[in-house]
Design a protein around this nucleic acid. Structure first.
Lengths: 334, 334
DNA sequence: TTGAAAGCGTTACCAC
DNA sequence: GTGGTAACGCTTTCAA
């Protein structure tokens, strides 16, 4: 394994000079630089990121803490992150989180400057104490789709999103509008669903409609489970004429339930989702689009800026939501 | 930042002893071990993976080289990898590849023992020279969904898969069976499509059916592009009664085209795909299922075994394919 | 069973 | 401009 010493010897210079060439220091004569570069090429030299990281005190990698399994939308955000990191040359290290213990473990291990150059926490609001610890350790952190104190944050206004979805249904003339989302007291502390439910409530209240407790249902972020839940809801005596699902995954589950029940959509049932994931366009699902990819990209860019010591302002960047009307919503029949 | 020296001082022992405790060396007295562990706890000590890696000559991370953007199926494989890595404690580093230059760059950079403890190359057959270089550098490598010499490999029999799909259509009574896939001469050297096409040809030949050149079409791995291509095909004079698409992404594009053309599926057109990705169940798509998640998991397990110096045999593990009949295939009309 | 010290491959500081 | 050398935080001999 060829090291910097080999290069130095081959070029007839000191290791310091090779290091300078490596790091594009301007104070190297052109002649020397050329000689060193020739030596590097001849030896097919590749610097050791490990040694570099140790010496500099921080590695050239950024960590992404993300619920990689449970939320399909997280993958799209991650794609944005990859794009945002672009050619900066950072390694992207994936930390999958499925449980609070999982998260605590990762976050604790990452609270060292030499664990990563920076951290992207996606969709998982870190407990304030753990976030503080990271910041105290000098670790640049950016939150994507999660809120927290003292660090840059990329979010959307989920309450507004809930209002947008509900208002769309109200505008079409619906009055019995159900809500399906994840339980508000989930262990990892996802808050998006609760916010969207709040938007739903506010829009209904504003329209002078009382909330029927029968029309609020919670289930995990899973299509088949939502299908079952939707079936129950649609079998009820006074079934809703429209459903607002807090995620497209659940919305497509409801679509399946409607098909099972022989209820034509949108004639007998309107369905609106949230996210606009890949499957939504295919399914013709009306939804509230949130910029998943863009959130990841912006998060990565903010993090890079923070690492470079530039913009460390803990600003909250709010990305716009957009109503995408497709073919699963219409005026209620008769 | 608390280091091993701090722990040693706090416990009143040498750093060597702390290191031994850290690495669960049996030759430490219980009393000493307890004292050291108490010190570690008191100081909230976390070892530096960087320093550890440098000292040991290889980091505790595994790299995954994967087309993260272009193939949805790669994500499911990656999920399997995360699961397979389990609690072994390795960091998972993502290397996204979109072009041959991209790949060459990553592979060259990774050809150092101290870049990763092992490498998982997913869906991208590495050029023999680059693979050889990795092996020569002593880097444990496992190929998932790609073939290569001298390293463990996890694959499926794509020719057989093409046969299975085509035979299903033949059994239903179809004779004009089209094929849609990615161009066989793609720059990254994906071979799956070409193999599936071969299976298609073989099945047709075996059934005594001549291939109509009109019925073979290539387009990129994209739903909308496949939709356009499908539209062309369905508008032709003698249109096929069935389509075998080399991926579910493309199959759903054809489904869209059929809907656009007002052709009922499966009555006027049968469609079968390949992969069984998430959207397929939702779409009711008949397909040839390949174990995406399982391939990632097995790949990870093989790699871990290889890293531990155990099973380094370059065995080829062939995972089974399965025909999943849903509602997009039926006997041709009349 | 334990301590001391020599690496591991860089970077960065200090002389020249 | 350039060379020498002390870190960086850990593992791993080698003695004791």
């Amino acid at each position: 394994m060829v090291t910097i010493d080999d290069v130095a010897a081959h070029a007839g210079v000191g290791v310091g000079t090779v290091s300078r060439v490596l790091n594009k220091s301007p104070q190297v004569s052109d002649a020397t630089r050329a000689r060193v570069e020739a030596a590097m090429a001849a030896l097919d030299y590749r610097p050791s990121p490990l040694a570099r990281g140790l010496s500099r005190g921080r590695p050239h990698s950024i960590g992404a803490v993300v619920p990689f399994f449970t939320h399909a939308s997280a993958v799209e955000r991650l794609r944005g992150v990859v794009a945002g990191l672009g050619s900066a040359g950072y390694d992207l290290v994936l930390f999958d989180v499925e449980s609070p213990e999982h998260r605590a473990e990762h976050l604790a291990a990452l609270a060292r400057r030499d664990r990563a150059a920076g951290l992207l926490v996606i969709s998982l609001p870190p407990p304030p104490a753990e976030l503080e610890r990271l910041v105290a350790a000098g670790m640049p952190v950016v939150l994507v789709d999660a809120r927290g104190e003292g660090v840059p944050t990329v979010v959307t206004d989920d309450v507004e999103g809930g209002r947008i979805a509900t208002q769309h249904l109200l505008d079409l003339g619906h009055e019995r509008i159900a809500f399906i989302g994840e339980p508000p007291d989930n262990p990892l502390g996802f808050t998006a669903t609760a916010q969207r439910e709040r938007g739903w409530r506010e829009a209904l209240a504003h329209a002078g409609i009382d909330v029927d407790a029968e029309l609020v249902r919670y289930c995990e972020h899973d299509r088949l489970v939502a299908r079952t839940l939707g079936a129950e809801m649609l079998a009820a005596q006074r079934r809703p004429t429209a459903v607002f699902a807090s995620s497209d995954v659940q919305a497509t589950g409801v679509l399946l339930a409607a098909a099972d029940a022989g209820l034509p959509v949108p004639d007998d049932l309107s369905v609106i989702g949230f996210d606009d994931i890949e499957i939504s366009e295919y399914a013709g699902l009306t939804t509230v689009r949130q910029p998943l990819f863009e959130s990841g990209r912006l998060g990565a860019e903010l993090l890079l800026a923070g690492i470079d010591g530039g913009d460390t302002a803990p600003a909250t960047h709010e990305l716009p939501l957009e109503l995408i009307v497709r073919s699963t919503t219409a005026a209620p029949r008769g």
